[in-house]
Amino acid sequence: MKAEKCASMALSIRCTLASTPDDVRKALAEVAAKLACAPSRPAPGDMWEVAIAEVLNNIVEHAYQQRSDGVIEMQLEFDATHLSARFTDYGLPMPGGTPPSGTPADLDVPLQDLPEGGFGWFLIRSLADRLEYSQEDGTNRLYLSLPISCVTGPT
C-alpha cells in the first residue's frame, strides 16, 4: 500500500436501507467492501465512516424514532480529496428545521454526570466542511462533504 496522492479515486455508491441499527451496520460494511477492492480508497484511520454512521444513526433514532420500517437513501461519492454524501429520509424533520449545532460535551463534571450521548452531531460537524439540510413535503435531505485522505495500491 502506497501512501501517495490518489490521482483518480472516483467511486460512487448508491444504496437504500431500512431504518435499523443492523441495516446501518450492513450498509457500512458493503461500502467498506466496495472501497476495499477500489484501486484507491480512504486511508486506514480515515474518519469518513464515523461521519456517515452518525448521520445514519441519527436518522434511525430521531427522524424515524426507532421505527424499523423507515426508508433511507444514501449516495456516496468518493474522489481523491473528498467524500460527498447525500441522504434522504421520510421521517420527522430536524427540530427547528436545522441540524443540531453539535456543541462539545461538557466533561468538567463529576464522573457520574459524564455524558453517554450527544457526541454525534459534534463529530459530524467537526468532520464535515459543508453541510446542507432541507425539508420539503415530508422529505428530509442532508448533504455533507468531508475531506478524506486516500491511498492507492492493493490492500
Binding site: 465512516e49 464515523v50 454512521a53 452518525e54 444513526n57 457526541f119 463529530l123
Partner: peptide, 10 residues
C-alpha cells in the same frame, strides 16, 4: 477498528 458515538457512550 470502528466505534461510533453510541459505542463511545456505552
Amino acid at each position: 477498528d470502528f466505534i461510533d458515538s453510541s459505542g463511545l457512550g456505552a
